[in-house]
Design a protein around this nucleic acid. Structure first.
Length: 503
RNA sequence: GUCCCGUUCGUCUAGUCAGGUCAGGACACCGGGUUUUCAUCCCGGCAACAGGGGUUCGAAUCCCCUACGGGACGCCA
């Protein structure tokens, strides 16, 4: 008899919870439920630099908000834990050692500079960039010596030079990729941590994952995984690569172009069940073509073969329509009231706003006009108000710089925001008051409002960013936007004055 | 640049595996009706098989080529 179906989602806690994660989670969950299996949540935090506990917490919370439940995970435990890769390093190191001992992997001492150089040359020669096997020629004695000397090293996977890797994707059929296209993948970094590829394969095996359902972006590295399974003497799971969610311009859904954080949708007033319903119709239709369905209905009727392969564009209009139907058809007015209060209609929210509004109040009726921007998804304002007395292009420039600077803020509170704008004012040699005017308008929709930094803190990072983006759009529509060229030179200027941009 | 994956209305998609009804539904948009406004709701309209070549009595469906789109090519995942 076949083994139990076990699927997993493996988010990396390196940023805000992404809708793509929720999308993958939904399909993994549905497949597991449909086949009376289990879904595992595993935290892939092998990137020591970028992973944070806050982000992990946020991901767990966002998925729970959506109603996605996992059977095993770092919070609820399970038979195959720990479920956080940073707590499993010994396991990986043992397997890496086994691979080295069996001659399937080797130590590499090459410098970043040499690798960079090599990559450049290969690109120039129209070849696929690939490690040239330089350190493969080291004798065991040399390796031992350099290792003892304390030279930093990584461990690479030995990949055949000829032939091809064939594997089956449940949706796409047979895929074959020449081994010569596959790099000698680093499986252990110089900090001793495994890379994704190694950790992923080891964990999927140890956690008895039967079906790997993941994004299309992984197709080209699947041969590395297949090879690892072979070398380690394990049988590989069934692979299914789902299409990627797209921006309206068809590129992979990204926060630069779209709100991608689950908390954005939460903060701007969407219902979790509507959100999940909408994600369920991306690349998929139920057998009876229903458009409104519960998570249970989705899971009970789920057939993975019905997934369609074209990358679906995330369409806010349709999401809103779905959400509207839930509000009107699936909830009673009492329930709506309750959900509204849970959202931003209750004391927990208003008690934060009152102190900010109070100095500006004469009567109660002053309160809502002042705080409406916190509840309004998209406050509107005229172009002239945004620009004020400043040069429109200068406003665009400041907004763009602020957008980049705000990406660096990791704790979104009043003080951090204040310091961002102070730095901005200093660097631009502008008075803070003058600098802030367009930001007041784009965040609150008005020149007269609550204190900006508190307001932004309350609004949250995602909503604030999207408003700056909308202001930039408005400027562009009025021929005051940044041209492609202007953007490039601004980026250069920005790097010099403010340092590197981060993702 | 190299490799891989994809391609049905503007968008999400049904139909493709087992070739044969005017290519169906939904969002958006447009028009009409209900409604003291608006919204909801109801009715109607617009609108697609990327292109070319095969196979076949017959192709959205099977095969090949081209174009276009996307992804991967990190000591990120």
């Amino acid at each position: 008899m076949t083994e139990q179906v076990r699927t997993r989602i493996a988010p990396s806690p390196t940023g805000p919870p992404h809708v793509g994660t929720a999308y993958m989670a939904l399909f993994n969950l549905a497949f597991a439920r449909r086949h009376e299996g289990r879904m595992i949540l595993r935290i892939e935090d092998t990137d020591q630099l970028r992973s944070t506990p806050e982000s992990e917490e946020a991901i767990l919370q966002a998925l729970s908000w959506l109603g996605i439940e996992w059977d095993e995970g770092p919070d609820c435990g399970g038979e195959y834990g720990p479920y956080r890769q940073s707590e499993r390093t010994a396991l990986y190191q043992a397997e890496v050692q086994r691979l080295i001992d069996q001659g399937h992997a080797y130590l590499c001492f090459c410098s970043a500079e040499r690798l960079e150089q090599l990559r450049k040359e290969q690109m120039a020669n129209k070849e696929t960039p690939r490690y040239d096997g330089h350190c493969l020629s080291l004798t065991p004695e040399e390796v031992e010596e350099r290792k003892n000397r304390g030279d930093p090293y990584v461990v690479r996977l030995k990949v055949p030079d000829e032939g091809e890797c064939r594997f089956t994707d449940e949706l796409r059929g047979e895929i074959s990729i020449q081994w010569s296209q596959i790099d000698h993948q680093i499986i252990q970094k110089s900090d001793g941590f495994p890379t994704y590829h190694l950790a992923n394969v080891v964990d999927d095996h140890l956690m008895k994952i039967s079906h790997v359902i993941r994004g299309e972006e992984w197709i080209s590295s699947t041969p590395k995984h297949i090879l690892l399974y072979e070398y380690l003497g394990w049988s590989a799971p069934v692979f299914t690569h789902l299409p990627l969610l797209r921006n309206p311009d068809k590129s992979k859904l990204s926060k630069r172009k779209n709100p991608t954080s689950i908390t954005y949708y939460q903060d701007s007033g969407f219902l979790p069940e509507a959100m999940l319903n909408y994600l369920g119709m991306m690349g998929y239709t139920l057998p009876d073509q229903r458009e409104i369905f519960s998570l249970n209905e989705f899971c009970e009727t789920f057939e993975i073969k019905r997934v369609s392969l074209g990358g679906p564009i995330f369409d806010l209009d349709k999401l809103k329509w779905v959400n509207g139907r839930y509000l009107r058809e699936n909830l009673t007015p009492e329930e709506v009231l309750q959900r509204l209060v849970e959202w931003k209609g209750g004391p927990s929210f208003f008690s934060q706003v009152i102190p900010l509004a109070l100095p500006r109040l004469e009567t109660f009726s002053d309160f809502f006009p002042l705080s409406q921007f916190l509840l309004n998804e998209n406050p509107l304002y005229p172009f002239d108000e945004l620009v004020g007395k400043q040069e429109p292009r200068e406003v665009a420039r400041l907004l763009k710089i602020a957008e980049w600077e705000l990406e660096k803020v990791d704790s979104w509170d009043r003080d951090s925001l204040a310091s961002v704008f102070q730095i901005l004012a200093e660097t631009e040699s502008k008075k803070l008051k003058e600098l802030l005017t367009p930001f007041f308008v784009c965040i609150t929709g008005s020149k007269v409002s609550l204190p900006l930094f508190d307001g932004m803190a309350l609004l949250g990072a995602d909503l604030s960013r999207s408003r700056i983006r909308k202001a930039l759009q408005l400027l562009a529509e009025n021929d005051a936007g940044l041209s492609k060229k202007g953007l490039k030179s601004l980026e250069k200027e920005y790097r010099q004055s403010y340092g590197k941009r981060i993702d």
